[in-house]
């Protein structure tokens, strides 16, 4: 009897307080800055050093590149097998040019396993959806890292023409 009243007292004391439930599907959650969602990839910055593929504990990254006429390596394919990616952030940490970064994207549930293979095109579109959009909003917004001037110009050009076109010409 008294135990019941004790429990009820807790319930009643909670009633006037603020509700703690987050209204997720209607209101998107605000993640911390360093939240690890799926990656974004910027092909212009990649120097095909293979460090991300080598450090990946599950070997879920595979990439290939060719040497251009200016003796510089250009990325051709970049695939992440997101089925087995454990979002450890090591690829981001080793990347010398910050070509691969994590985003806050988490809505990735799929009906088939094939949909969890993410290629370079998807990852670049993910960049445009996330920090790419932010960078374009704040002008060029490029800081640090080698080869940034060229990337900034490319990103700026994409902003001037059309965001979609910037994605497809990769």
């Amino acid at each position: 009897m008294f135990g019941f009243l004790k429990g009820l007292a807790v319930t009643i004391s909670r009633l006037p307080k603020k509700k703690v439930t987050l209204q997720y599907p209607e209101v998107k959650p605000e993640w911390p800055e360093r939240f690890r969602g799926i990656h974004e990839f910027i092909p212009e910055r990649c120097i095909v050093c293979n460090q991300c593929a080598r450090i990946c504990p599950t070997s879920c990254i595979s990439l290939s590149g060719t040497r251009g006429e200016d003796r510089k390596l250009r990325i051709d394919t970049y695939d992440i097998n997101f089925e087995i990616c454990i979002l450890c952030d090591l690829c981001t940490e080793v990347c010398p040019t910050e070509a691969i970064k994590m985003t806050g994207e988490f809505e990735l549930a799929a009906y088939s396993r094939d949909q969890l293979y993410k290629n370079m095109e998807w990852l670049y579109q993910n960049y445009l959806r996330h920090s790419g959009a932010k960078e374009l909003e704040a002008g060029t917004g490029e800081t640090g890292g080698p080869g940034e001037a060229g990337v900034g110009a490319a990103a700026g050009g994409g902003a001037a023409s059309e965001q979609k076109a910037g994605g497809t010409d990769e």
């Binding site: 997720y24 599907p25 990616c85 990735l108 799929a110 009906y111 396993r113």
Partner: peptide
């Protein structure tokens, strides 16, 4: 439904269940 992530956050699970 497959929900990727290691582990997926509660919103990601809710998204999967909505799917």
């Amino acid at each position: 439904v497959y929900i990727p992530g290691c582990p997926p956050s509660p919103p990601a699970l809710i998204y999967g269940l909505t799917k």
